[in-house]
Design a protein around this nucleic acid. Structure first.
Length: 576
RNA sequence: GGCCCCGUCGUCUAGCCAGGUCCAGGACACCAGGUUUUCAUCCUGGUAACACGGGUUCGAAUCCCGUCGGGGUCACCA
């Protein structure tokens, strides 16, 4: 590990929405690479698109990263106290990490590009001065015309400064404040990009154009801001998605013009949906649109669940490019009994995935540690500490990956099951506070027992209500599954009903109604009568839950409580 | 369409750079058995891939060429 301290990476999202899984993986790798080499990891907000950027989105991204445990050394300051002020629960920040994330110890900030306009302009002026950049006054219509013209000749349009360009006149117009963009004079020579993942890639000059450095609104373009900031912030390694590969020669040429260093580039394979389509925030809208019934009255009932007006819904239904707020989407999905596809970090969090599992799974998309267990199986379950110790550029793959929800689910289930019970209890409570605040109140002091019953039976925290749903019903609200009743209560010799009647006094007189005591009593009862456990357990299940499926007998009865259990069994005996 | 990248089981991948130990290993999914009071676990076993065609070589998943296929990108978005 030579020159260890010299590594500086950054994650630079644009704040146009929640962080999505592709972004998470990029952030994760940047973070891990910096950690691995004892370097620094910067978070920078690329908010140069005034129309699409929002402070809310920026805050959401910080929140997402903090929850994932991807902590930045430099960048916007994030602290639990600030979180509380923003209406976010302080527990949402991982316990293990520092309480405050970010800051500007080297004074290379600010970390919002919109606050760095002076810096960009300074470098831009220097380029204009040397005629390496120049103002251009073309209108959108003129550019369109040029593009169309190129298209009819079956050529790719590429903007280059015309031979007769009058620089002095252009500079006069610029100083006069005439609206214009400033373009880079792309040198007429090929550019070779060296990539740590893909190797050496040559781009010939005829495909490189005089791209825009500063937009008419005075903001820098992504290309310009990224090159300036990476240099000023000392970024040594740029890890990003392969969609940026074709931008790289532009950045390299710009760096040369500005006398900047070229960082090490590592372009990562892309992540797609299981069906090969692009993972998009619109997938959620798409899913709801597809499930939306045609009938007007059903639509109306669905809409009642949201604050939408009929016209809002109509325009959204008609225009496939429109997106509904997540809240609305969620309520409609609930009304339709539909689960939305998870795309953003927030979606996975709401579904109840563990942050460390999401990180583990995502880091396996396009990378792997290349290590085996003693039994020869591949090492593929690991935590953030492991990632930080073993992540390396040379094990990043080249081919795109499809996101496999089943595998994520399997990882999550295993991780949930492996949690110490007290830890599971804590995590579930935390999740409930944010997404199901009514549940802890409903469960009251039964929460711990519910946690115990639920932990080995769920894949995500969002599924926790399911295995213990019976415990939330009123005692006279059990609906009996007819098939179960027939099979476990009416048939057999003795019948289930007879066994129940026989067992009821035992239950009523139990000194201790803890799961262990219940199970012990049930076992003793069966042994004394030479009955198989199923002869008692199944009738009991049906009597108190209505079905043959439930957690362990002791847990099930314990959750309902002695009084409730007796009441439910009596009711069963009386009505059937 | 131009340019660029990629191509091992259904999916994620190991193996490729330094050709033989690979009739290709693991994980998820799937199928079949088993354990268990139901469910969920857990255990055992199984199906399943080197895109295709040439070449180099004693020998190619591994090196070279071509074909086909997939993806990215061609903005005053990032």
């Amino acid at each position: 590990m030579t020159a260890a301290a010299s590594v500086i990476t950054r994650f630079a999202p644009s704040p146009t929405g929640h962080l999505h899984v592709g972004g998470v993986r990029t952030a994760l790798f940047c973070w891990a690479y910096a950690r691995r080499h004892g370097g620094r990891f910067i978070l920078r907000i690329e908010d140069t698109d005034q129309k699409r950027s929002s402070e809310d989105a920026a805050r959401g991204i910080l929140e997402d990263l903090a929850w994932l445990g991807i902590h930045w050394d430099e960048g916007p300051i994030w602290a639990p106290r600030h979180a509380a002020a923003a209406g976010v629960h302080p527990h949402s920040v991982a316990d293990s990490g520092p309480t405050t994330i970010g800051g500007d110890p080297r004074s290379v900030g600010p970390f919002f590009q919109a606050q760095r306009l002076d810096i960009y302009n300074r470098h831009l002026d220097a380029l204009i001065e040397r005629d390496l950049a120049y103002p251009a006054f073309d209108t959108a219509e003129e550019l369109d015309a040029l593009r169309r013209e190129a298209a009819t000749r079956k050529e790719t349009f590429r903007y280059r400064r015309r031979p007769g360009y009058d620089r002095d006149a252009a500079l006069r117009r610029l100083r006069a404040g005439e609206p214009c963009v400033v373009r880079f004079r792309m040198p007429d020579e090929p550019v070779r990009v060296t990539d740590a993942v893909l190797g050496e890639i040559d781009f010939t000059e005829e495909h490189l154009d005089d791209f825009v450095l500063r937009k008419a609104d005075g903001f820098p373009t992504y290309h310009f801001a990224v090159v300036v900031d990476d240099e000023l912030m000392g970024v040594t390694h740029v890890l990003r998605g392969q969609e940026h590969l074709n931008n790289t020669p532009r950045h390299v040429a710009l760096q040369r013009a500005l006398g900047f260093r070229t960082p090490v580039y590592a372009h990562m394979p892309l992540i797609f949906n299981a069906d090969g389509s692009k993972m998009s925030k619109r997938d959620k809208d798409k899913a709801v649109r597809r499930a939306m019934p045609a009938a007007a009255d059903t639509q109306a009932s669905v809409m009642a669940a949201t604050s939408l007006s009929p016209s809002d819904l109509a325009t959204w239904l008609a225009d496939k490019t429109r997106q509904l707020p997540t809240d609305a989407l969620l309520s409609i999905a609930r009304a339709l009994d539909l689960s939305l596809p998870e795309i953003d970090v927030e979606d996975f969090r709401r579904s109840g995935y563990l942050p460390e599992v999401l990180c583990n799974y995502l880091s396996l998309l396009g990378w792997n540690p290349g290590m085996k267990h003693a039994d020869g199986t591949d090492l593929d379950r690991f935590d953030m500490t492991f990632l930080a110790e073993h992540f390396s550029l040379d094990r990043i793959g080249k081919s795109n990956a499809k996101f496999d929800r089943d595998k994520l689910l399997a990882f999550n289930q295993a991780a949930v099951a492996a949690l110490p019970p007290a830890e599971f209890d804590r995590r579930w409570r935390e999740w409930c506070e944010r997404y199901d605040p009514a549940l802890p109140a409903l469960l009251g002091d039964r929460f711990a027992l519910a946690a115990r019953a639920v932990q080995p039976r769920i894949r995500t925290l969002g599924q926790c209500r399911e295995p213990i749903a019976f415990a939330l019903w009123p005692d006279d609200g059990v609906t009996f599954d007819e098939k179960a009743v027939e099979k476990t209560l009416r048939k057999g010799d003795p019948t289930g009903l007879a066994v129940l009647r026989d067992f009821l006094p035992t239950l009523e007189s139990l000194a201790d109604f803890a799961p262990e005591a219940i199970d012990a009593a049930a076992t003793a009862f069966c042994e004394s009568r030479s009955l198989g456990m199923g002869k008692l357990a199944q009738p009991l299940r049906v009597a108190v839950t209505g079905s043959t499926v439930s957690p362990g007998l002791g847990e099930t009865l314990g959750l309902i409580g002695r009084e409730g259990a007796v009441r439910r069994i009596r009711r069963c005996l009386e009505t059937l």
